[in-house]
Nucleic acid binder design. Structure first.
Ligand code: FES
Ligand code: FES
Lengths: 149, 149
DNA sequence: TGGAAAAAAGACATCATTATCTTTTTTACT
DNA sequence: AGTAAAAAAGATAATGATGTCTTTTTTCCA
């Protein structure tokens, strides 16, 4: 469904939402250590997210990445748009040209409710709200931050 | 989720289940035209399925692929095992090392019910039953076979 | 003002998936 | 027996995703 790149990106954004702010920036190195992702690869992804104004960054000593309050008003969906594009969400699970209820493949009516649920989650919640709801249910984005809340 | 290869394979098997039998074999060319898949690529996949006894075939004039009654007792899950392997079904949707309810990622409780539903569908229904239930609900595996039932 | 820290940018390398091409084997039919 | 049809097998190519390396730019701080 999502590429590795996109998974890394989403977890990075959530990580930054939880652990960073304008006053506490985090370097690529620290992020990759936490998320256990390849370092230069994640750097590229963060550059991309930065270009699309989904994360903020400053160069130089004590620089690093962080999420501003404005950044936190974006959604996971925006991250997916930036890294993977969202086309694939329209594809049929079994590879039919079109996914629709008129000519449904055998798993269509299993897949669509799932897709709608997760899509609503990604599209309608801001990063800020996303993180808030994670705290409530003790969900994690890295095994290392089990005790972060 | 599934690779293109696996999607092609699943649709081929279902296609053969519907349209072929010991007396009516179908060549690669005809199948690829129906399913709109790359011809030599699908040939490879059918070879693989044949090696794993998921489809039957005969060489020579009037030869081709078909599903025997025994073949129809297999499942979609067997096809996935043969082409993609089933490891990825255990992976976390957001790329965590492990997917489990103790350290769930933010979408874990959305993904798991879907996975269980579709997995049950793939694992517990024989191809034969699968096709039978398709007929009931007018589901398709190619836009071309809308009028096949 | 010089040096170091960090992101940004660009070029390059590796790998798996996807796809094609060619040759061989089997088999039916004349 | 000879020929043609079809799958089987093996070699090769193209593509995109993944990952790395090097250089440049920006910025802080001493
Ligand atoms: S038609 Fe296949 S998932 Fe909708
Ligand atoms: S932990 Fe992510 S899907 Fe289960």
């Amino acid at each position: 469904m999502l590429s590795n790149a996109c998974k890394y990106a989403i977890r990075s954004v959530l990580y930054l939402a939880i652990h960073s702010n304008e006053l506490k920036k985090i370097g690529v190195k620290a992020i990759t250590e936490e998320l256990e992702t390849p370092q230069p690869f994640l750097a590229k992804l963060l550059q991309q997210l930065s270009r699309d104004n989904l994360v903020s960054s400053t160069k130089g000593p004590n620089g690093g990445f962080f999420l501003s309050d404005i950044d936190k008003q974006n959604t996971i969906w925006n991250v997916i748009e930036s890294i993977d594009g969202t086309d694939k969400f329209d594809n049929c699970f079994l590879g039919l040209k079109k996914c629709n209820g008129e000519n449904p493949c055998p798993v269509h009516f299993i897949v669509v409710p799932f897709k709608e649920t997760i899509l609503a989650d990604f599209r309608d919640k801001t990063i800020e709200k996303y993180v808030a709801s994670m705290e409530g249910t003790r969900q994690v984005i890295t095994l290392k931050d089990l005790d972060s809340f």
